[in-house]
Simulated assay, not measured.
Amino acid sequence: MKHTVAISTKICGLTTAEHANLAAFYGARWLGFVFFERSPRNLTLDAAANLRPHLPKRGERVGVFVNAEHNFIEAAVDALDLDWVQLHGDEYPHEAQLLKARLGISVIKALGVSSREDLRQADLFAPHVDAILFDAKPPKGAILPGGNAVSFPWHILNGEKLPYPWLLAGGLTAENLPRAIAESNAQAVDISSGVESAPGQKSGEKIEAFLRTAKAVR
């Protein structure tokens, strides 16, 4: 299916101003920052506060959290002046609702999927969040809920008339993005490990290549 609008992109797991500015320059809509100690992409609150003055004005800032205390999320929102909070753990729908009310911030809920049946989880969250992110389920034994460079069968999303905004994530690269979009009919995509040279080490060349590819997909 041909797309009549440009694909919206999220570069996640950013840790440096250089790569955040590069992502914004090449048109990323969202800039993602991970606040999760076990991640190689983790930002501490101090690091976030130091990074904030050097971030681009363009791009919506997303903080990624995994079963985090609400006070910690609030501190991270303040430290980095976040526009969005992404919940990537075992959070409940009412938690998303509470955060939206408390912080006045947009919320993304990430869900691990591998079959069409898994997509139904989103129905519980959709009334309480601003977008759903469909990611691959973590491999057995993985310590991270995302950023594991694995994908799910993209075609399970095609033909689904989902009545809420959603993003496709999991194992994306510049090379497989056109096929992923063709199979899923995604309008928005999220990438982290696919633009890295090593876990937690972003590659400027890969960020540029991915964003150029996303712009070219029609």
Score class of each variant (00 low, 15 high):
1 M>F: 03
1 M>S: 12
1 M>Y: 03
3 H>K: 10
4 T>L: 04
5 V>N: 08
7 I>C: 10
8 S>W: 10
10 K>C: 13
11 I>H: 00
11 I>C: 01
15 T>R: 08
18 E>K: 11
19 H>A: 05
26 Y>E: 11
27 G>A: 02
29 R>S: 09
30 W>Y: 14
36 F>D: 11
37 E>G: 15
38 R>T: 15
39 S>A: 10
45 L>D: 10
45 L>C: 09
46 D>H: 00
48 A>K: 05
48 A>R: 05
49 A>W: 08
49 A>G: 15
49 A>K: 15
50 N>F: 07
50 N>L: 10
50 N>W: 04
51 L>F: 07
53 P>M: 10
58 R>S: 07
61 R>D: 06
62 V>S: 02
63 G>D: 08
64 V>S: 10
64 V>N: 12
65 F>Q: 11
69 E>F: 00
69 E>V: 06
71 N>V: 14
73 I>T: 12
75 A>G: 13
76 A>D: 14
80 L>V: 09
80 L>H: 08
86 Q>Y: 01
87 L>W: 07
88 H>G: 12
89 G>D: 13
90 D>N: 15
90 D>F: 08
90 D>S: 14
91 E>A: 06
92 Y>M: 15
93 P>A: 06
98 L>G: 05
99 L>N: 08
100 K>M: 14
100 K>R: 15
103 L>N: 08
103 L>F: 05
104 G>M: 07
104 G>D: 12
104 G>E: 10
106 S>P: 12
106 S>D: 15
108 I>V: 15
112 G>Y: 00
116 R>Y: 05
117 E>Q: 11
118 D>P: 03
119 L>M: 13
123 D>P: 04
124 L>I: 06
125 F>K: 08
125 F>T: 12
125 F>H: 11
126 A>K: 00
126 A>Q: 00
127 P>Q: 05
127 P>I: 00
127 P>T: 04
128 H>W: 04
129 V>A: 06
131 A>K: 06
133 L>E: 06
134 F>K: 07
136 A>V: 07
137 K>S: 03
139 P>C: 11
142 A>M: 05
143 I>S: 15
144 L>H: 07
147 G>T: 11
148 N>R: 11
153 P>W: 05
153 P>H: 02
155 H>E: 14
158 N>D: 15
160 E>N: 13
160 E>L: 14
162 L>N: 02
165 P>F: 05
167 L>T: 09
171 G>E: 09
174 A>I: 03
175 E>K: 00
176 N>D: 07
176 N>F: 02
177 L>P: 02
179 R>D: 03
180 A>V: 06
180 A>P: 07
181 I>S: 07
181 I>N: 06
181 I>K: 01
183 E>H: 03
184 S>I: 08
189 V>L: 12
190 D>C: 14
191 I>D: 02
197 S>G: 09
199 P>H: 03
199 P>A: 00
199 P>Q: 02
200 G>H: 05
200 G>F: 01
201 Q>N: 12
202 K>S: 08
203 S>H: 05
206 K>W: 00
208 E>M: 01
210 F>G: 03
214 A>E: 02
215 K>N: 07
218 R>C: 11
